[in-house]
Amino acid sequence: MRMIHTSDWHLGRGFHGVGLLDAQAAYLDHLVEVVQAEGIDAVLVSGDIYDRALPAPDTVALLDDALTRLMDAGATVVLSSGNHDSAVRLGFGARVLAKAGLHIRTDLAAIGVPVDLGDAVIYPLPYLEPALSAEALGADEATHASVLRAAMGRVRADARDRGVPTVVVAHAFVTGATTSESERDISVGGVAAVPTEVFAGVDYAALGHLHGPQEVDPGIRYSGSPVAMSFSETGHQKSSVLLTVDGGKVRCETIAAPVRRHLARLRGTLDDLLADVTLKDAEDAWCQVTLTDAVRPLGAMERVRRRFPHTLQLEFEQQVVDLTGSSYTARVKDKSDIELCCDFLDHVRGGHPATDDERGALRGALEGSRVGRAGQDDEGGARAGAEQEGAA
């Protein structure tokens, strides 16, 4: 028997203002091809199918098409909800769909009820929000570890005498795993981590939530997200996990996911980055660029994008000037209004002093303001004098 473990599709997600639906559709096309080519019996998706509780219509249509094609290819599909999904909406029609081979598990009442594949049993666990699930599961306390222990108690009770490999599908943060910036914090009262021993006794724990593919302990693995969603995922080898059940054991190997556009993080002065011949590959990448110029270059983003047109994030890392040695009053003492205005312009532009034309414009504005105030004062004084004469 062969299965695919995947998770964290986050359908509908954006990346610094760029929609990812095309890249996500490419991954789902790839997944269907793998199911067909490898004779996959089941596809396990460990939560965060959607990126938001109310997905857009084109996102729903993409999922509907992908699930139909996976099932047409002969695979049983098992989905469990993640912390980004609406359990109620994702789980609509689950009992009817199960009869066709699509098993969607979002309900606490179904915990411990397996999807029986014959040579293996699958126990899908929806994302368990401690505050909402602790009492229903009979957990000792409202923590992630406690509610998962309670859920796993139901799993072990059902799996005890089945005599075939047991696979658990869960969405959680397991101790020892490496996080990324693109994951939503699921901590409650600062306690989110679940120890690996919670999954003791199962043959494979197919985990979701963390976007970096990794094996936390033997048989406890995150497939990771198939599409990168933050620059912290630069260098990730996006993939799915192929599980083979043979002789009562579960073997794992990874299958690389397609990459529509890779990520690059560039750091240096603007001139150095534009001249660096080793950065040829970054010209077609989504780029995060950090400029280290002592003076912030004018038109930096425009110049960067001439060479790296897919730059999405531009940051500046400049030497911090120590101003603690003198107070603000001391720094502005004896400076004229025009000097203060030019100093402010220099500061907000990161080291670009005012030009002669800008000094002239500022001087004209200051003079106009002074004359305007004087006129208001004269008008106010005349009005006051007239009122006093009238009163007399």
Results as ranks from 00 to 15, higher is better:
A53Y: 00
D217I: 10
A131M: 14
A392H: 09
A300G: 03
I338D: 06
H211Q: 03
S240D: 10
K333Q: 13
A391D: 14
L128Q: 00
G325Q: 07
G176M: 02
A25H: 07
S146P: 06
S180Y: 05
R184A: 07
A56P: 08
R221F: 10
E33K: 14
L148N: 05
M71N: 00
A282P: 00
V188G: 09
G19T: 11
A66M: 03
A110P: 03
R69L: 04
S180P: 07
A300M: 11
A300I: 04
S230P: 15
A134Q: 00
G235F: 14
A61C: 09
H347I: 15
T76D: 13
A139I: 13
V18E: 15
A392V: 12
L11P: 04
G74E: 00
L97Y: 11
A257W: 10
I104Y: 13
G268R: 14
D8M: 09
A61F: 07
R261C: 05
G372V: 04
K333Y: 05
A365T: 07
A392W: 13
R306E: 15
G212T: 11
G82N: 01
G219N: 09
L270E: 06
E387L: 05
V277I: 08
V147A: 11
L291I: 07
I255C: 01
D276F: 02
D272F: 00
W286D: 15
V147R: 11
G364K: 13
K249N: 10
T143A: 01
K335T: 15
T244G: 12
V77W: 02
A384Q: 09
G380N: 15
F15L: 10
Y204V: 00
R296G: 10
S146F: 11
Y127D: 11
L44D: 01
D29M: 06
I255V: 12
P195V: 11
G201A: 01
V78A: 06
G19R: 15
P309H: 08
E317T: 06
R149Y: 07
R296C: 03
A200Y: 14
V155P: 06
A285G: 12
D72F: 11
